[in-house]
Amino acid sequence: MAGILDSVDQRTQLVGENRLEILMFRLTGRQLFAINVFKVQEVLQMPKLTLMPHRHRFVCGVVTLRGQTLPVIDLSQAIGMRPQVPNEHSTIIVTEYNRSVQAFLVGGVERILNLNWEAILPPPGGAGRQHYLTAISKVEDHIVEIIDVEKVLAEITPMSTKVSAEKLADPLLEHARGREVLLVDDSSVAMAQLKSTMAQLDIHSHSASDGLRALKQLKSWADEGLDMQDKLLMVITDAEMPEMDGYRLTTEIRNDPRLKDLYVVLHTSLSGSFNEAMVKKVGCDNFLSKFQPDKLVDVICERLQLDQPNV
């Protein structure tokens, strides 16, 4: 387990090349699961677990790491599998999503794997565990299920999608009413959050579950002869998605003369200066950490200001 995340600097070079690295692990059975390495802070043996009264049923308790108290979430139970029983030999994965840090109880960590996003496919339709997956991949004849962690966290601590009255009162938003946006995200929870915010602004939302589908839709509109800047107020895209990530999507938009002037916002649960650097590298116009309705409105107002400089 030691050293499993030692080469993060090398991995940052993968982003923008439509590549990622996943951390594979098991829960209560033989099935392999994974999350993106960039969400992972560390992997370690369970520290002393403290039980908390009135905790959510998916939360085993809390641990203290370097002065920070973190909830420990039973990931197996959270995605509908049988609960795990934590003990001093248990393994936890400490992650950061949407500006919050938490630990996930897992059965054991396998290894890190470098993949192309084209090898990451949308999950098959159907009931059951697919409800908690954003994607799947095949590794040495084994199916790896990539978990929709945003959905798991939203069920434990739901995020508000309500825009404050103060933000809604901004007169600049009158210029947004009736406009259209393209939302690109593989998480059903994130997509619903975005659509809710847009509805409050009377903005019409088109949606795509990955970068490749979004690019095909954009090119289809352009093929119809539509002026893309008139058509869309902006494109709001997640970073990590099956088949084509948000960084590559932005690069492809900038490389198409018909699309290159679109306003593109990177909207991701990945946080920190790394993403700000990637925004500049691939040519995004703005960056926003999930999920902050008021700040999303600020970004929309910044975009509107470009068309209404004297407002």
Rank of each mutant, 00 (worst) to 15 (best):
A165K: 10
A214E: 01
E140G: 09
H131R: 05
H204R: 13
S164H: 03
G126C: 06
A208M: 09
G128F: 12
P123H: 09
K151W: 13
W221A: 12
L172E: 05
T161D: 08
D148E: 13
A119N: 12
V152L: 10
N116G: 07
E180R: 13
Q130V: 15
L115D: 01
S209W: 05
V181M: 04
V184S: 01
S205E: 08
E166C: 11
S187K: 03
S196I: 08
A190F: 06
D141F: 06
V189H: 01
S209F: 06
E174N: 15
A135F: 00
S137G: 10
G178T: 03
E145T: 09
Y132T: 00
T157L: 13
H175K: 15
A119C: 02
H142S: 12
D148L: 03
L201G: 01
V184N: 00
V181H: 02
Y132I: 01
M159A: 11
P171A: 03
A169L: 09
S196E: 14
V152S: 07
S160Y: 11
K216T: 15
L201R: 02
N114D: 12
E140V: 10
L201F: 06
L172H: 06
L201M: 04
L121I: 04
N116M: 09
Q193M: 14
H142R: 14
V189G: 05
R129K: 08
V144I: 05
D186A: 05
H131C: 06
A119D: 13
A222Y: 08
S205W: 05
D185L: 06
S187D: 00
M159G: 08
D141R: 11
G178Y: 10
L133Q: 00
L133V: 03
L215R: 01
E180C: 15
V189Y: 02
L173M: 13
M191P: 06
V152N: 05
A214N: 04
Q217D: 01
L173D: 05
V184C: 07
P124G: 04
L113C: 09
L201I: 07
S160W: 13
E150D: 15
S196F: 07
E150Q: 13
V189F: 02
D148W: 02
I156G: 08
E140T: 07
E145A: 08
A208I: 02
Q130E: 15
S205G: 15
T197C: 09
A135L: 00
P158Q: 11
L133K: 01
R129N: 09
E180D: 14
M159I: 14
R177D: 07
Q130M: 12
W221K: 14
A169G: 12
L218N: 01
H142Q: 14
N114G: 10
A192D: 10
M198E: 03
D170M: 08
D186M: 04
L173G: 02
N114M: 02
L115M: 15
D202N: 15
K219Q: 13
H131D: 07
E155T: 12
R179T: 03
L121H: 03
H206P: 11
A135N: 00
I203V: 14
A176C: 14
D186P: 00
A165C: 09
K138N: 11
K138P: 03
I136E: 04
P123K: 07
P158W: 11
L194I: 02
L121V: 09
T157M: 11
S160N: 10
K138Y: 14
S220N: 10
S207F: 11
D170W: 06
